[in-house]
Design a protein around this nucleic acid. Sequence first.
DNA 1: TCACGTTTGTTAGTAGACCTTACGAACAAA
DNA 2: TTTGTTCGTAAGGTCTACTAACAAACGTGA
Lengths: 411, 411
Amino acid sequence: MTATEAAPGQAPAGIALGSERPAGHASPTAAAGQLFAGRALRTSGKVLPEHARSHNRSLVLQTLYTLGAQSRADIARETGLTRVTISDLVAELIGEGLVVELGQREDARPGKPATLIDIDRTGHHVVALDLSEHTRFRGAVLDLDGATVARAEVALDGATGERAVELVTELLDGLLALTTSPVLGIGVGSPGVVGPDGVVRSAPNLGWTDLPLQERLQAAFHLPVHVANDANVAVLAEHAGAPGDLVLVKVGHGVGAGLIIGGRPVLGAGSAAGEIGHVVVGTDGGPRCACGKHGCLEAWLAVPRLTAELERLGDADAAASAREETLREAGRRLGIVLAPVVGALNLSEVVLSGPTELLDGPLLEAAVETVRNRTMTEHHRELRLRMTAHGQDIVLRGAAVMVLSGQLGVS
Amino acid sequence: MTATEAAPGQAPAGIALGSERPAGHASPTAAAGQLFAGRALRTSGKVLPEHARSHNRSLVLQTLYTLGAQSRADIARETGLTRVTISDLVAELIGEGLVVELGQREDARPGKPATLIDIDRTGHHVVALDLSEHTRFRGAVLDLDGATVARAEVALDGATGERAVELVTELLDGLLALTTSPVLGIGVGSPGVVGPDGVVRSAPNLGWTDLPLQERLQAAFHLPVHVANDANVAVLAEHAGAPGDLVLVKVGHGVGAGLIIGGRPVLGAGSAAGEIGHVVVGTDGGPRCACGKHGCLEAWLAVPRLTAELERLGDADAAASAREETLREAGRRLGIVLAPVVGALNLSEVVLSGPTELLDGPLLEAAVETVRNRTMTEHHRELRLRMTAHGQDIVLRGAAVMVLSGQLGVS
DNA sequence: TCACGTTTGTTAGTAGACCTTACGAACAAA
DNA sequence: TTTGTTCGTAAGGTCTACTAACAAACGTGA
């Protein structure tokens, strides 16, 4: 069996064949259940027994990924498949180098000692890119544990269009040179509207329109590439196996959101789901926004606007309450926009990502309070609104999760 | 093969065995892909080849359901499965009585004439109930084409609690007596919060709390029963195979919504998705609501409030513009609540259900305009906001779709 | 110490699901 | 009548996961 069999019944879009890469860069088989293009077992369309196997293969990987090293018998008990089937699947995965035997379990129990196996976590790397910042592109090499192996970045210096694409490939070149293990794939979080096929429909700041970034990077690097919107990518980092619905609001130069509902990312009719930055807040006007409207969420909440306002107030003690009120007001505005969404989706968790010094404090408190006051509290008693724990690296980590999901079916 | 094999790998919740029903009431096998409990091929959990077959079985039914009578070869081409496999599946379905041969196709083409087959559309009935009205329970017997075979209703007369349950069973008794074909199942759209297991968590108007309605009706009638929230059921009627996302807003005594995202209904963390009636609209107060807050969507938009307001204004010509402004204002308020949801989900379609004379006109126009003005128009150029075409029967028809989806995997 | 039970992982054989290949039947067009 | 097409079915092969059985390796208790 070769290691580069595309999923049958579907065009093998997005699966590069890696044969032209230097040794050590393998492309494992595409597995069912990836988070973006291809969706988990397409709602319609035929399902063959081999799809079932692909699903079960991912199930084994997922079990190992979340539970850590296990014996074959453990996995059988966990998944409900038989030991025989698990042995067969594991043999396949070991053959592909994705899984390794770790030796015998050491604790003293009756019976034959178990052979522990696990995903070769440090033996594979993922390359992740965050293109969402305004002044630089950031990137990192991660192993499957999420540990950062290497970092790199390039200054943008106002580059746009084709020049910006060049910077992406340069950054990737540098990162790939830093990898010391086979690379499972490349994950990219891009600003703007990104189609499910990794085409950047529109990213004004980078001057990109209908740029087939995923396809081009795939052609250039001969590795599986996944490109998606930065906020949609970020929410994957936060999702991390939690089964419930989740919304992540990413506050930066703009304001965007990523949604996971029913365990699957929401893309929207025009691939523009989560673009809440230019939704008007409230019925009492508000600051003028770059888009021409008044009182857009971005006009209240975007980082440049908040920092400018705080700077204007100065850092004198006398202005402390005015500064706090500025943040509270921004939080209230966020809450006003979130309330209908929380109500309509009956969300249990909303996560905020962005500069901690601005968001984590009065702003967050005001947002929680506002959402509570504006929705039917009894349905949202368990609503949690909190800061992300991933900090600045959330897009990078999410991009890595996207690759894991796409290549291994692990999410 | 028996006709009552529950889906393996999962408790056969919600699949009654029909054996105690009088002849003519069969329960076909549970199929994959139903819309509520059981979800389309559970995200996690093992998948066996027999699940694949169940899926393909549903695929055949779905193809017939949406395309109408077809030959086996047509279905093979449409689904991508081979003629052999389709023949096998069809033989199974014919054996169960779900599908019938209609004789040869009549048009003149070279080759052996095709034998047309179709779901036995008039040979099966579905019983649907709408419990969402305030003064009565409505019900109907439908065939698989959606044609109404019979109708019935009972006056509520303020009945609550156990007495209301009795009225439901009486209504069902009457409707089942009117069926003249095997009944596939019973679908119920109930007001209030309904769990995925058909337990009515809370329906204040009926005085129901944690009422296991689905289970009780199943026990009473020995037929598959599906119970869900009325708005969540209504959106199924509107969905009807359209692959995109969809939100239905149901305006009546209260205001509720049903959401379908990625082809699947959204239930929410507390099964309360779509409960937008008590989301506060705008930042300028508003009418006091029964819930205690000011400016809830229901306080603006609910039918009793609107009719009362219009009555207060009188039907004199002089008050015409005031009446229109009342409706426009209600529409604007709806638009204000919808805008963040439309933006966050990048919706392409929102459907309104309720009294046409109130909703279809200035109210709808104002809502469209408001949503457009408050979101980023370029992403929502194709947004359609329209009245349902199902009229008053939308919950009944949706309840029928729910049964079809649950029993046949057809949606 | 040694039989015994327990647990692990593998081997062998079976049932199910879909595929490819092949074929007869039935028709239109030449 | 011949030729080509299309339909549905039959036979045989491959793949998947299952059951049954077993050897290996370990504690435990007599």
